[in-house]
Design a binder for these strands. Structure first.
Lengths: 374, 374
DNA sequence: TAGAGCCTGGACAACGTTGTCAGATGCGGG
DNA sequence: CCCGCATCTGACAACGTTGTCCAGGCTCTA
């Protein structure tokens, strides 16, 4: 958390105190003072001001602003002029309060800086835009508490809907919100302990196919490097790995699997260990894009040729020598599907929670087709 | 724009009409009906409900919710129980209306799916979080109208501040907003026709250094492929290219410069033309990350060895053969700097608009050090 | 035990908008 | 000439919260 010693404390719950006198500074008073002193904050014209200037009633201004019928052209012109002159802009906060809908949805994901989430977020945004809604983004940094904090903050803002890429595994805290009408769709990983819509990639099937691909090219000693198994996708991919191995009747050595590996250094160490261990692997299956990138680095420094299939596509994968074979998932499709489902909920279609699984696609580029070198 | 034939029309300005009777459907009535029928929408408990259940006054609930002093432990407990039982959550819309600050800032950028903007957005989010504010994102898709639409929508929501990566070149429409107190910082490109804070990378200096680097390695026929010169960064990089060439006393052929090139196909064509033209180039300077990626592809298919320096770092650039030499800018630093400046404005520090330029860094990896092959 | 002062709690207005409803205006026809 | 009707306009309440301010009960001291 960055330091924030500032006077901008929108959510501050303490009562500010004057340094010299020790008196409580009453915020309202402060705000009034701002207004009177011509401070730049606040002090925006309201419909009332526009009405006064145009010499019409409040509601007439509202009608003009909202394009409602029943205003003579002449009156409308006068109102428009007043709006122009004062630089009036409707206060949507007040509008929201009155109407009950905020026309905004929230998206909670792991890390907006991850190239996997950018396209996903953009896809959600496009769908929201098509429905006249804005998008509020938040990164949970894979921290369940932060996820909950974010989600509840969004609920307090009364977002109409939530798209959540869960970090935690217990979402019962969302029950009252969902009951109260907040549309909710989970993406990439299912919700924990509640029944809700979820859109995910076929991690199990994708991983299984990827590993089977390596087996088909003659590999039997195949390593798996993945994230913490408490993350659903990581667990599913591991399950896919195991299933493919079992399908082929290959017993798996413990030293071939590295789980809960995050951060480039740990991935590097894990890869080096399974490449030089007592029973060295001839191929590696990488559980996500970050792992893939690091493994590519390690293999580039490695003398022996080692096959690689990664989960998630990465940019420029086709230009490496050899090209990196991957099990690709479509991040944008995940986001789009989830958002569309969200707005279907908001349309009031009484739909029972569903699990939507999108297929993955094996893209062969060379690294996965290398023969075992042992 | 996606199709949106839905009943969720938060911004709808038309008056809905009953299909059968032709009567106007009065939204308020509809909403009341929803409530009465136990519809899941709306119908959330308010402080009043909590107060009634706890047998206390409205303001007492407010005090408990906001952690204000002056409530006996026993009363507080009763209120907490009522909150728990009803699943109450404070309505921040109403709070915002009363307090005048929304504790949210807006970020308008070109495309969240672009790997350059992900880290930038994340950095802005972190700073916002440190100040207790949420972040609303919007993509302008490089369309000035859409930028304006987004910005004004955010202003109507009364965001406390705006970070804008401009698509247009005239931001006078923001003048009333800024006067009204919306803190504003532009990033990556300066604002048009208004005086405002701006944080940018040293595009001119970076490009000049990058091209000088190629010249230092013996190149004289150097191509430039960049975006539309109406985009400030593109123009600056072109200027840097020209400056470096002029510094070295090298006259520039028109056929070496491709401007306003967007989309992989056009970049590809531009690159092929300058490689096979009457005076073929021996090196290429790529004006942004998307151009770089495509040029790398073209060069990979090309027999003759051609040097390349790109503006913006790209992932895996070090793993290509040869590694891609780039002029790197720090997207996260841009975002962080801009956001910090924004909150400094909100703190009320009377600061005059400033232009902050962040340095770029030349990262040599091989492609920029190839000798001319002619 | 009375009075001063503190602590707790609650009634009320206000934030800026929209929905309701009734009043004003103008027009045409009887 | 007046009535009815349609059209246009505006007063008012409500949305859910917070700031202000006062009342009532308590403690403490003289």
């Amino acid at each position: 958390m960055l330091d924030a010693t500032s006077s901008y404390n929108p959510m501050d719950r303490r009562i500010p105190v004057d340094d010299r006198t020790g008196q409580r500074i009453v915020p309202e008073t402060a705000r009034r003072a701002d207004r009177l002193s011509g401070n730049r904050y606040g002090n925006r014209p309201t419909m009332k001001d526009v009405a006064a200037r145009a010499g019409v009633g409040l509601k007439t201004v509202s009608r003009v602003v909202n394009g409602e019928p029943g205003v003579t052209p002449d009156t409308e012109r006068r109102v428009q002029e007043a709006i122009e002159a004062l630089g009036f802009r409707r206060n949507d906060s007040a509008r929201v309060l009155r109407k009950g809908r905020t026309a905004s949805i929230g998206l909670v994901l792991e890390d907006l800086a991850d190239p996997f989430y950018g396209p996903l977020s953009r896809a959600v945004e496009e769908v929201a835009r098509a429905h006249g809604a804005l998008l509020i983004n938040g990164s949970s940094a894979e921290d369940p508490d932060r996820e909950q904090e974010l989600v509840l903050a969004l609920c307090a803002r009364r977002v109409d809907g939530l798209v959540v890429i869960p970090a935690g595994d217990d979402h019962r805290y969302l029950e009252p919100e969902i009951r109260a009408g907040v549309a909710t769709v989970f993406v990439d990983r299912p919700a924990g302990k509640i029944d809700a819509d979820v859109v995910l990639s076929d991690s199990f099937g994708g991983a299984r196919a990827g590993v089977a691909h390596l087996i088909a090219h003659g590999h039997r000693r195949i390593g798996f490097i993945g994230d913490m198994p408490r993350i659903h996708t990581a667990a599913e991919r591991l399950r896919g790995y195991r299933a493919a191995m079992e399908d082929a009747g290959i017993p798996v050595e413990d030293s071939w699997m590295s789980l809960g590996v995050t951060g480039p250094e740990r991935v590097r160490r894990a890869a080096e260990e399974m490449l030089s261990g007592p029973v060295p692997v001839t191929a590696v299956f990488a559980g996500n894009n970050r792992v893939t990138v690091t493994v590519v680095r390690v293999l580039a420094e490695h003398s022996r040729s080692v096959a690689l299939v990664g989960f998630d596509d990465i940019e420029l994968a086709d230009l490496l020598k050899p090209g990196v074979t991957v099990v690709a998932q479509d991040a944008a499709a995940l986001g789009r599907t989830a958002a569309e489902r969200l707005f279907r909920q908001l349309d009031g279609a009484l739909i029972t929670p569903e699990r939507i699984e999108l297929p993955t696609r094996l893209i062969t580029r060379g690294s996965g087709e290398l023969p075992p070198a042992d």
